[in-house]
Design a protein around this nucleic acid. Structure first.
Ligand SMILES: [Zn+2]
Ligand SMILES: [Zn+2]
Ligand SMILES: [Zn+2]
Ligand SMILES: [Zn+2]
Lengths: 140, 140
DNA sequence: ATCGCATTTGCAACAATGTTGCATAAATAA
DNA sequence: TTATTTATGCAACATTGTTGCAAATGCGAT
């Protein structure tokens, strides 16, 4: 199983909880907040364990934490979990209604040139709005 | 007084608290977190009132809320409080050590063109790192 | 398969951050 | 000055995140 291998190859013990959570995030079509996870695993996984599981995944680069304009944390599966570099410049677009997050094109080199005088660890780029699908829904 | 006028012209009642808070944010050289404000006004202004004062300022565009890579909210005076538009695309750089926030050049038109097919309300761009001044300090 | 050690988990307790309702105080309009 | 509206403080509560520790589980080595 893909997910099991993913855990093993990142020297994370394969527990039922980790399997369930990573599988859930992997198949999710939208970004999940911590409370999304809490309600999904209510009665199964303790809130504190979820925090620790999530943090382990982030450290191993298996999921990405995306912070929206209100400071809310959302988690998505990191399809590029092999590449350890440059992952943190990836711009995203987040629909404020359905929570879907898609990747945007990378910032142009010309722009990065302009700001390269600064010591920059990472750049966060998040565009937000209501996606076409949700906009259509609203009309009804 | 500049600050008093700022409140009046935004139809906010001029109270001692609002004057004190807005003056404090205006003269600050770095972005202030809520707990920064709490400790500064400890014993003078209630925590809840601070939340309400801050929210009022944000609604009136007098200050800007900047969310860092950890989701922490920081507030800075909005020098462009007159312009109501395009304020929310302004990229920023935040020093992780001294908390200073400076403005970065705007995103190139070519990039905005690329993503204009999406419904975008605002774009958040925040670069983070340790500024030159703080990097020097560290060496000592 | 079993043993033993290291890691993970649940639970309780706590800390930090943010919200709401309501009585009182203060600011502005009349 | 008075009346009306708005702001404030306080208490209570909700949400989010952290820590310590005992019990459960995973896993490598027998
Ligand atoms: Zn996959
Ligand atoms: Zn949507
Ligand atoms: Zn000024
Ligand atoms: Zn600095």
């Amino acid at each position: 199983m893909e997910i099991i291998e993913l855990l093993k190859s990142n020297s994370l013990r394969v527990t039922n909880h980790r399997l369930a959570v990573l599988t859930y995030i992997h198949q999710a079509t939208s970004a999940l907040s911590h409370s999304d996870l809490e309600s999904n695993f209510k009665g199964e996984i303790d809130r504190v364990s979820l925090y620790r599981i999530i943090n382990a995944f982030i450290e191993k680069n298996l999921i990405k934490k995306i912070i929206d304009a209100e400071g809310q944390k959302n988690y998505i599966f990191n399809a590029k979990h092999n590449q350890k570099e440059d992952v943190n410049i990836q711009p995203h677009y987040k629909c404020k209604t359905c929570n879907d997050i898609i990747e945007l094109p990378e910032l142009p080199e010309t722009y990065l040139e302009k700001i390269k005088g600064l010591n920059i660890d990472h750049i966060n780029v998040l565009a937000e709005g209501v996606c076409d699908v949700c906009k259509e829904e609203d009309k009804k």
